[in-house]
Design a protein around this nucleic acid. Structure first.
Length: 584
RNA sequence: GCGCCCGUAGCUCAGCUGGAUAGAGCGUCGGCCUCCGGAGCCGAAGGUCAGAGGUUCGAAUCCUCUCGGGCGCGCCA
């Protein structure tokens, strides 16, 4: 509907340009939904925006625009108001088209081809496989998946990817931690390092290893600890850990080390995969960092930067001239030790993505990584890749509240709330809805008690209840020995004249615009808010207007309206990864 | 110190590329069940959009500064 009016406006403006009223390079003007129904249904500020360029007063220009507008059957009236707004009022039945469309298109209602099949990749969560997913990752998962769904719904060819950091020091620390817990199980008097992974899951992995391999990886603690630099608090915990890892590799030999390293990775990855699956998040691809390192892609990426003349050596390390591309300082690619940094593999990773031909690469990151964005863009620019293809979406932290008090989290000590615990406590539906209820750049206060409560306060139940209630009406219909005659209902849509019905129809008609806007802004919270509003309009209608009336045509028309509402609720909830129950 | 994000009703937040009297939910107060699920509906009170300048026909929205909060600023990932 909005598109149709935009067409009319564009035609009118083109005509005025042809007549010389408007200069050829006049800026575009848009049609928007009127906020206040007193201003009609849609409005355009074209006359206000273009008045200066045309050298006319806004109201005079508005009159010229109105005169130039082509006729359209849906438009009942066009009025000029205020300083020069042009307001469109539609004929009441123009809105009813939405009911027909919702029923005819079913699951496709609201979808569009705006993306024209262009390829976009959404990479999200990508947590290190060194521990279970916690509630912070949950928000990234809910957000990233919903954004991917929205892009799919608007005609993009979407790929969801998880970047697995299976190379590097953090994985080595996990391997060392697992091995030390394993040695404890073997009866060795281990002093567990301050910097090791403390969580219970490490014991579980160690126990798995012990069950499977017996004492094959046992080494005397005295040999392990011999001559290591002191741990914190007396010494440096990082140096201690590095030495411990080196010692582990030396004592275990390559094969045993790979085994210990591998079981940690395997168990954690499997746990992450299961958590996400239960959270209704599926990936097209799990991309291994190690495959980049071992395949030489990291070295090649560094070489490409070198060939571009954007690296130099200093203090024994290899630096990338990031400051020449807008970053605040230069960044190390290869350490003095010869080890490439995480940044180097990330450059290689994004180079690989770009090479896979995605028109857009959307990375969903925790907001604490924001400082990392400029250097990655800088690297892409230095490699001749348009940095605009990379879109980094930062998701702020979620803070959990229980009983009005903040729930403390700390990854170090292993006392964090895991995504699994959250899911078990409030359920996937409530968790996913709450996570996307606020815009991503907003800190999220996640009230566990509210998410669990089965009351009107809880927006998830409110929306789901609307869906279940419509299903219940249909069951009642059946119990009365009646059936819905869709054709008869659609033919009688003109009889939906009650204020609540008209309001519901208008909200319904907005759905395709909501999907498009939410996708464009990468803002699934707009869908959540819309669903709340739609449910509200439905509940109001439910209380004001009886559906199962004796008049067959009127009944079928009203049922067509609420079935269209049910379809819209279901489509919206699906985009957010939330179920639409038939009864609750 | 520098950089990024944020500051809107008692609380939690919307407010789409600047647009016409600033919107929801919760909470508070007052109403609505002989009827399709009361997990519902209706109404009322409640705001100097942190503050000060500026741009504009028009600013919660854009620019500058100040104040307040969060997060970054590693040869960690």
């Amino acid at each position: 509907m909005k598109d149709r009016l935009q067409q009319l406006l564009d035609e009118a403006l083109a005509r005025l340009r042809a007549e010389g009223v408007l200069p050829a390079d006049a800026p575009p003007a848009a049609v928007e939904r009127a906020r206040d129904s007193a201003h009609g249904d849609f409005a355009t500020n074209a006359a206000l925006v273009l008045a200066k360029a045309a050298g006319l007063s806004p109201r005079t220009l508005a009159e010229r625009i109105v005169a130039a507008l082509p006729q359209a059957p849906q438009v009942e009236a066009v009025e000029i108001a205020g300083p020069g707004f042009v307001n469109f009022r539609l004929r009441p039945d123009a809105w009813l088209e939405a009911v027909r469309a919702a029923l005819a298109q079913g699951e496709a209602w609201g979808r569009s081809e705006a993306g024209r099949g262009r390829r976009v990749q959404v990479e999200f969560v990508s947590a290190n496989p060194t521990g279970p997913l916690h509630v912070g990752h949950g928000r990234g998962a809910a957000y990233g998946d919903a954004v991917a769904n929205l892009l799919e719904a608007t005609g993009w060819a979407v790929e969801r990817e998880y970047y697995v950091n299976d190379a590097g020091r953090q994985m080595d620390i996990l391997a060392a931690s697992v091995w030390l817990r394993y040695l404890e199980l073997c009866g060795e008097p281990v002093a567990f390092p301050a910097n090791g992974y403390q969580g219970d899951y490490v014991f579980d992995i160690a126990a798995d290893l012990h069950r499977a391999d017996g004492e094959a990886h046992r080494r005397p603690w005295g040999e392990v600890a011999r001559g290591l630099p002191p741990d914190a608090p007396e010494g440096d915990q990082e140096r201690h850990m590095d030495a411990l890892i080196a010692r582990a590799r030396e004592l275990l030999g390559p094969e045993s080390w790979r085994r210990v390293h591998g079981i940690g990775l395997e168990v954690m990855l499997e746990s992450i995969r299961r958590d996400l699956e239960a959270f209704r998040v599926r990936y097209d691809r799990w991309f291994s960092e190690r495959s980049l390192v071992e395949g030489g892609a990291v070295a090649r990426a560094v070489e490409r930067l070198r060939a571009a003349g954007q690296v130099y050596e200093r203090d024994g390390a290899l630096w990338f001239r990031a400051s020449a591309f807008g970053d605040e300082k230069d960044r190390v690619l290869v350490r003095e030790s010869g080890q490439p940094t995480y940044f180097a593999s990330d450059v290689a990773y994004h180079l690989d993505k770009a090479g896979r031909g995605f028109e857009r690469m959307i990375d969903v990151w925790g907001a604490d990584h924001h400082g990392y964005v400029p250097r990655l863009r800088a690297a892409l620019a230095a490699l001749g890749i348009d940095p605009e293809r990379l879109e980094v979406r930062l998701v702020q932290f979620a803070v959990l509240y229980r009983g009005g008090r903040k729930v403390q989290m700390s990854t170090r000590s292993g006392e964090f709330v895991t995504l699994r615990e959250l899911r078990e406590e409030v359920g996937t539906d409530a968790a996913r809805f709450f996570y996307v209820l606020r815009s991503a750049e907003q800190h999220l206060d996640f009230d566990l008690d509210l998410a669990k409560s089965q009351t009107a306060d809880n927006p998830v139940y409110y929306v789901q209840y609307a869906h279940a209630r419509i299903c219940s009406v249909m069951r009642q219909l059946e119990a009365k020995g009646l059936a819905h005659d869709r054709a008869r209902g659609l033919a009688a849509l003109g009889r939906l004249t009650e204020a609540h019905e008209r309001s519901l129809v208008r909200t319904l008609a907005r759905w395709p615009e909501v999907v498009e806007a939410a996708a464009a802004a990468r803002a699934p919270h707009q869908v959540a808010h819309y669903l709340r509003e739609l449910a509200n309009d439905f509940h109001a209608c439910y209380n004001a207007v009886p559906f199962l009336v004796d008049d067959d045509a009127l009944r079928d028309a009203r049922l067509a309206l609420i079935l269209a509402t049910r379809q819209t609720l279901a489509n919206g909830l699906r985009l957010l990864g939330v179920s639409a129950p038939e009864s609750m």
